[in-house]
């Protein structure tokens, strides 16, 4: 099963002729992702790693009507337009890798996509991988292995780190999603956790949060109301981060007294979620609950 993407996902890569788009198209193809087409306005007619490039998604859809998802590598100032193009073609998920998109733009297209019932992953994210089936992102594939743990994270490399430890513990992942490091993202923890709860293949869930905002607290209060139906473990990064400073991610900032790590850890623990002190404890925390 997995969530969001699987063997049936047929992909268009927007911004395929750029440096990142080109490079990762190659890696995704190697992984077995079904990339049907690429789009770069003005570059129609080219091929990238054997994938035909079109000027627009419409033209790509004419040849490949089965395309149902997009991954976007378009630079920030043109990214919004690419997102709207994907939305108007009803593609979902739309995986938006691009970093540095102005927040006003994100607010608009994310609300528009949600209005149309489409899912945006990102912006500023590593993407999604359902190991062994489909990779729509920039993560190094070797740390992932098909398995039963659903992983949702606001981070990139830290996610690879923890996925690696889950793989080494022999557990593997059903799907791993980086929702993005921006203050406003297309998907939040509650939505993704719910998808994992509904997914039969996912037997346990890992949440990787960080300072900034209150997404973790919201998840905690949601879990408190609904109960914890599957084993869960969490890690929160940024316990030593000072207030008022952005820690790399646009969204990782403690502001107006909100968004500190302690409040997130406490809220999750209070809801009954096992919270790791250090990342390497995650597999053990899961095993402990699975054994029960």
């Amino acid at each position: 099963m997995a969530i969001l993407i699987d063997e049936e996902t047929k992909v268009v890569v927007q911004g395929i002729t750029g440096r990142e788009g080109d490079f990762h198209t190659g890696l995704m193809l190697q992984y077995g992702t079904k990339i049907m087409a690429g789009v770069t306005p003005g570059k129609g007619g080219l091929k990238v790693h054997g994938v035909p490039v079109y000027d627009s998604i419409d033209e790509a859809l004419e040849v490949n009507p089965e395309i149902n998802a997009s991954i976007i590598f378009v630079p920030a100032r043109f990214a919004s337009d690419a997102v709207y193009e994907a939305i108007e073609s009803n593609l979902s998920p739309i995986v938006l890798i691009t970093e540095h998109i102005p927040i006003l733009d994100s607010i608009r297209f994310i609300n528009y996509a949600r209005l149309k019932g489409l899912k945006i992953v990102g912006p500023n994210c590593p993407g999604v991988i359902s190991p062994g089936r489909c990779k729509l992102g920039v993560m190094p594939s070797r740390v992932f292995k098909r398995g039963e743990v659903g992983v949702v994270s606001r981070s990139g490399t830290l996610t690879y780190e923890i996925a690696d430890s889950i793989t080494k513990a022999g557990l593997g992942q059903s799907t791993c999603i980086g929702i993005g490091g921006d203050p406003v993202t297309g998907l939040d923890f509650i939505e993704v956790v719910n998808m994992f709860l509904e997914d039969e293949e996912t037997k346990a869930i890992v949440i990787i949060g960080e300072i900034g905002g209150d997404m973790e607290e919201r998840l905690a209060s949601y879990l408190k109301r609904h109960g914890i139906e599957k084993p869960m473990a969490a890690y929160i990064a940024g316990k030593t981060a000072p207030p008022g400073k952005r820690m790399g991610h646009a969204g990782a900032i403690i502001s107006m007294g909100l968004g500190g790590a302690e409040s997130k850890v406490n809220a999750l623990r209070d809801a009954g979620v096992e919270v790791a002190q250090i990342p390497s404890q995650i597999p053990r925390l899961l095993e402990k609950q699975i054994e029960k």
């Binding site: 994270s153 606001r154 981070s155 990139g156 490399t157 830290l158 996610t159 780190e161 490091g181 990787i208 960080e210 300072i211 890690y235 990064a237 940024g238 316990k239 030593t240 981060a241 820690m247 790399g248 991610h249 990782a252 790590a261 002190q277 250090i278 990342p279």
Partner: peptide, 21 residues
Amino acid sequence: ANGAGLTMASMDLVAFYGGKP
């Protein structure tokens, strides 16, 4: 470190083992 989350986690680990980033 490489990546914001990993860099924060590295800082936190330094503190966890009794150091100060």
